[in-house]
Write a protein that binds this DNA or RNA. Structure first.
Lengths: 347, 347
DNA sequence: CTGAAAGCGCTTACAG
DNA sequence: CTGAAAGCGCTTACAG
């Protein structure tokens, strides 16, 4: 049984009020008294009981992070950024992600309904996700990542994907003017895919082209399915002098590998670009031209925002927009030197 | 202000004792009464206060997971496995990882000293880490991942790396009998590297070879440093008809890329193999021959073990050993068909 | 500057 | 089967 505040009080021959005061550095405690108390605390190895404290203060110093998934670098980078900021600011991080067996409601309640977190960061990556409903029922400060939830007042941090995606499209169009660009996205209801596809359409139309349904594919962000698609399509795409714009790096890698297996040279016969700028982007050969998305920073920014909200519950809702950035490597067929001028043109 | 147990009691016209009883499904409560109470609970949207409950029960249903780092797939897979099992068993997961600014003591205390977790899973990956000291001071049930901590009674789950590493070495020796094998490890104090290097030495000696200091390199598990080393050494290694045994997939990828950039063909002129079987292993060309390490399972097993210990504090300390497994792909120069016979020989 | 006392929201013997 | 009461370990007015 660990020492309680009463044990400390007895040892230091003061009341528990005084012990509590030195703990919370409130009103000035007499230096001598304080020293006695501190000595007792040390001797007893006393640490305040979090539950008793939480009961009074209604604060746990724990924030929750709810993710739709835990596969891949994308999410782990968010956790990494959130962990760092959380620790720096003296909080703790409770992480929860969807598992196969649960509907999205469970995920949120798993971390929030217990009432133990002081606030919640939730990533909403699907438009149709019940997670949005679930979120709308929670009653702690909330920061939404990536998406938006109707009907709840909340802060959010999003990535301006449009910017990076538009730069990428401009880049591809510049390299192969008038040639088709294939879009390989994730699920149709996935918010990131929606954003990136939107940028794709705009760019194609703006360039005077026409968006063809046959140029758009919806997969699942995985290497293997993209590889399989590539096996089937890569020859045809090369014949059209097309380029491939994949909505994440893994799918780009899959398509590149399929192309190479088919004896095509990337980028010469088929430029392929990705999105996210994960580690994978530097491991493929050719190295991936992609769009950098600051995932760890997103996690950290969310934590900061949330803690500000916890401190001041009625500050105006804030939206932080992080910029994405075109990273030109080898898989698009343009030397990095080409990069600057192009960027300038579209800005 | 959320509803309290008293609000429920009033609405249902019973005492708080009765409300508490229906909540905890203790002694049979009269069905009629129970129904009244449950109705009140529903109407009020009542949820028990975790802090008050924790104060009485001394239980938070939160377990802590302390990791040395959060970069890369290795750790994220552990989190994924732990998250799944934790949720299945009705617990919550608090994650904490080292950040640059702290000494290892901070990491552990960040999650355990608050006294809020019911138990702790800690990964110890360095022999010299102060984290071991820090861990020895904690007073909740503990499961150690990968390493071992002196002087504390604890359960642990480890990977039998020796098995996979030995199989890999036998495989390499079989392919190029009598030729040198280069070992590229992580830090010298890293437990995984120590294990893998040990298997390396044994295998070389057992094959009648001699371990040469010049064949052993200690890097940092990163792609880039391995690539740099490769740039420098790859030609020499190829001339010696050597093979390269890297202690993780990323470094193997770095060396492969360096070899290819140098105009060498992998595996024909330089077989290179990895360790861990992360996603990267399937993205490299040639695909990596590597050793599969069940990371997610390790995370899940640790959670299970911890919860068993929490339930029964005096059960004997248990050690779970998970097997690693040689995965033959392309980068070693042996067709998978060769795989089975070789495995049989060494077993 | 310090102490006695109330109260946070629960659980759990103890009576009835 | 149900209620009154004590107690978990804190914080915080309120007096002094």
């Amino acid at each position: 049984m660990p020492a309680s505040i009463e044990d400390v009080a007895k040892l230091a021959k003061v009341s528990i009020s005084t012990v509590s005061r030195v703990l919370n550095r409130r009103n000035v405690v007499n230096p001598n008294t304080r020293e006695r108390v501190e000595k007792a605390i040390r001797e007893l190895g006393y640490r305040p009981n979090v539950f008793a404290r939480g009961l009074m203060l209604r604060k746990s110093n724990i924030i929750g992070l709810v993710l739709p998934d835990l596969h891949g670098e994308f999410y782990s980078e968010i956790i990494r950024g959130a962990n760092e900021k959380t620790r720096q600011l003296g909080y703790h991080l409770m992480v929860s992600a969807a598992i196969e067996s649960d509907d999205s409601h469970d995920i949120v309640s798993a971390v929030s309904n217990q009432g133990i977190v002081d606030g919640l960061i939730a990533m909403v990556s699907e438009t149709n996700a019940g997670i949005a409903d679930a979120i709308s029922t929670i009653d702690v400060p909330l920061v939404v990542l990536d998406g938006d939830v109707q009907g709840v007042r909340h802060d959010c941090v999003v990535i301006n994907q449009n910017e990076g995606a538009a730069a990428m499209m401009a880049h591809l169009i510049k390299i192969r003017p008038g040639k088709p660009i294939i879009f390989v996205g994730g699920n149709e209801t996935n918010l990131d895919t929606i954003d990136r596809l939107h940028a794709y359409r705009s760019a194609v139309e703006q360039a005077g082209g026409e968006v063809s349904a046959g140029d758009i594919f919806h997969l699942d962000y995985d290497y293997q399915t993209a590889f399989d698609l590539g096996v089937e399509m890569v020859g045809k795409w090369a014949k059209q002098n097309a380029s491939v714009f994949a909505a994440n790096d893994e799918m780009a890698a899959g398509i590149i590998d399929a192309a190479i297996d088919a004896g095509l040279s990337v980028p010469a016969q088929l430029p392929v670009v990705g999105f996210d700028d994960t580690r994978i982007a530097q491991l493929t050969r050719p190295r991936l031209t992609t769009v950098h998305v600051p995932m760890a920073i997103m996690g950290a920014a969310a934590v900061e925002l949330l803690l500000q909200r916890i401190e001041d519950p009625k500050r105006p809702a804030t939206k932080i927009t992080l910029q994405s950035e075109l990273i030109v490597r080898e898989s698009c067929g343009a030397s990095p030197a080409l990069h600057q001028p192009i960027l300038r043109e579209i800005s």
